[in-house]
Nucleic acid binder design. Structure first.
Lengths: 150, 150
DNA sequence: AAAAAACCAACTAAATTAGTAGGTTTTTAT
DNA sequence: ATAAAAACCTACTAATTTAGTTGGTTTTTT
């Protein structure tokens, strides 16, 4: 699994867009200043986000980036996936050929964990993050915890 | 977050121990052959597992390693932690000083995800893995999914 | 005494990540 | 028209991490 600065930067930048991009497009220079992320690095990330149609760009002065969809319809998992951070923790990229073409001893464990991580991040939209500044899991998790622990 | 070959190797090797170590200690050479993990690399991993008191060693011919506790009492999270793979995905190692000493925009998101991953892996023992060869999460997850999705 | 094993330290190759450098193209405002 | 602001693009680089190697020593059994 890869979940490093790159994925965190991408989500942070998209969240910045969701917060500041209501009226006019937001330039990467602004995001760079606010979030303290190198401008060139942001450019590379936004190239990928654009390829995956998560953002639209406006060139020229006053230009910048806008979310390509409502913030309710963009999910953290999509952002992470777009910048090439796979949330998959299996050794075989889910193929199941990890030990002589068969699944290895621990394949199902990693597969299940991967599914859970992806499921968790697929359920959180940018709008959720804007609403409560990232405190998202607390919502349902009490019930879930009780179920798991009982 | 780091969850790479190292952590997977460690869990696989411990599972091998749980399966083959009932009667006599298991040598790393055996694990190395069965699981196709470099012997020297296994040695490094077991040095850490021993330091964290997850395994006991027996030196000399016929020696090897044994689980230090019942397989019901050793959890995947402990193994991952022992070999220095942190399952924490925050940028600040959970300290919450990610943006000028304050929490960054996405801190809670990563913190919640980290907690979930750790919670998941803390609930799975080696015995669970032996029982159903790793197919563990399926158990409770249907109910959980329904709750989350409704 | 020999062999099997744990134990140990230092090194190395490969991969990945984060970041830099140095541009071009497009578009707006003056 | 021109200058400036911004996206867009490609290639390079430094640092870090990972996986693995090398070459031992120590302990214990046969």
């Amino acid at each position: 699994m890869k979940l490093t600065t790159r994925g965190r930067y991408a989500v942070t930048a998209m969240l910045d867009l969701a917060i500041h991009g209501e009226m006019q497009p937001v330039s990467l220079a602004d995001i760079s200043k606010r979030q303290e992320i190198s401008l060139s690095y942001l450019e590379q990330l936004f190239a990928k986000l654009r390829r995956e149609a998560l953002v639209d760009s406006v060139r020229g002065p006053g230009g910048g980036y806008r979310l390509a969809h409502d913030s309710e319809a963009i999910f953290v998992a999509q952002i992470i996936d777009a910048v090439d951070e796979s949330v998959d923790v299996t050794n075989c990229q889910g193929k199941g050929n990890c030990h002589h073409g068969e699944v290895c001893l621990t394949h199902h464990l990693w597969q299940d964990l991967s599914d859970r991580i992806h499921g968790f991040l697929s359920g959180i939209s940018l709008a959720d993050l804007v609403d409560n500044r990232g405190r998202v899991a607390a919502r349902g998790s009490d019930t879930v915890q009780k179920l798991i622990l009982q």
